[in-house]
Design a protein around this nucleic acid. Structure first.
Lengths: 255, 255
DNA sequence: ATTATCTATAGATCTATAGATAATGC
DNA sequence: ATTATCTATAGATCTATAGATAATGC
């Protein structure tokens, strides 16, 4: 898999300068050892990702991860210094992808909106892009989503690192919301975002709670149903409180 | 503390039949051993609650809990059969309290609304009651809130038990929302609740994320700020999507 | 010659239990 | 006599490391 991405990265780069190959010669067949290493690493990270997402950092042992892949537990110490590094690499694998995609979507939306972004438009670029990533990305993204949801509510597990990584996209979204709602206070924008991210986080966790609560009418896995409602719901929330609270401020000023 | 609540439960019960005391004689001074047992139990549950809320079920050892209280770790096995029971009793201590208070608040609101409940009114009974519980309840409730937030996003830790306990209040809330929004589909009501509970959960976790994201303008601990916005924000969301989606259904029918 | 994987093992920690000790209860 | 707490310890498990073995690389 990684061998494939190395190849495609090579072929994607600067196709108009083929006369300068960056390395000696591109290997015809993927080199076996590099391939083996990449595969083992990926399998271990996949297994760790799934187990961490189900039981949390402390609920998983190095042996659990190795057993799931079918290798000896000491192999983990060959590829990683300790369990914390496994966890960190699980995070480092996908977090920049979702951050990058949302940033691009917000850039594209801002360009398309021509100086007049709407609340729902900005939220759609942010939310629907992410919901697509997590719903079309297969098991790996599904587990990563559940793990992110846990981490989001358990700051002691190194949420600060995650936060710092996502800060730029979030501030980018809030910048667009500020344009769309010039009368909103900063506090209202940030609290609104807080509500949005709480709802998104719970969605990524796919707990199955809504399935049984609704008697089967809704399903945690139904990200299309979430996409149909979430951006619109939250946009009405933003606009509503800004309107209500601006009216209240005017009333207080008059008194 | 437990001695106190036994006493008050005694005095609260049927004050018009004082001639039939249920036990031999109410003890003038609290009995020392019962008091000691109750205190130890409470201290152990307090310590467990705080530690679990920070590190999760598997991140806490029996020794950690005992050390925090200053007793020997084997004492935990005297009061509880195993760690799982400690965890379960931590949950059993406060979960029924928040469930009961919200149920009472919804009953009171329905009676006061005289057949015409509003979305925001119902949400206020549900949300503001809970936010009050968690913000005025001291450290114990603060830790329990953070722990609940973790569990909410980690179904493998016995969230089903919690769910079943909270189902009645949630369905009660949704019943009121259904009255307030007779045109809403069941799916819209349940997904709307899903968004609400995600936002509430993140609030209870008090992660500090919004503090640093907003550069200090908002604080995770500021439950008054949340109360000022949350019910109103969510009510606008509910009304908004029901309106939008009903319009869309009419449009599709016409085509 | 280097790399990937496994075997063996040390040392720490964790849960759980049996039984001793010190306090309160009647 | 009963209850609350502690001591001692067994057995399991966990992390981490040293070193052997079996592959691939040049």
């Amino acid at each position: 898999m990684t061998a494939v991405s190395i190849e495609s990265a090579f072929y994607r780069g600067a196709p108009d300068r083929l006369e300068v190959p960056p390395m000696t010669t591109p290997p015809r067949q993927p080199r076996r050892k590099a391939e083996q290493r990449a595969e083992s690493l990926e399998q271990l990270l996949d297994a760790a990702e799934e187990l961490f997402s189900q039981h949390g950092f402390y609920g998983v042992t190095i042996k659990d991860i190795a057993d799931k892949v079918g290798v000896h537990k000491s192999l983990i110490h060959y590829y990683f210094t300790d369990k914390q590094e496994v966890f960190d690499k699980v995070m480092a694998r996908r977090a920049p992808v979702t951050s990058g995609r949302r940033m691009e979507a917000l850039d594209a939306y801002e360009a398309a909106a021509g100086g007049k972004p709407t609340v729902e438009g900005a939220l759609r670029a942010f939310l629907d892009t992410d919901l697509d990533t997590y719903s079309n990305g297969g098991d790996g993204w599904r587990h990563f989503g559940a793990l992110s949801a846990q981490i989001n509510n358990t700051p002691a597990w190194g949420a600060e690192v995650m936060d710092r990584l996502f800060d730029p996209v979030v501030l980018r979204l809030i910048g667009l919301l500020r344009q769309a709602l010039p009368d909103a206070t900063e506090e209202d924008l940030f609290w609104g975002y807080h509500f949005v991210t709480g709802a998104l986080t719970l969605s990524l966790a796919r707990t199955g709670r809504i399935d049984h609560l609704s008697g089967g009418k809704c399903r945690s896995d139904d990200f299309e149903a979430i996409k149909e409602r979430m951006a619109s719901f939250m946009a009405h929330g933003f606009i509503g409180i800004c309107h209500d609270r601006a009216a209240e401020r005017r009333k207080q000023t008059r008194e």
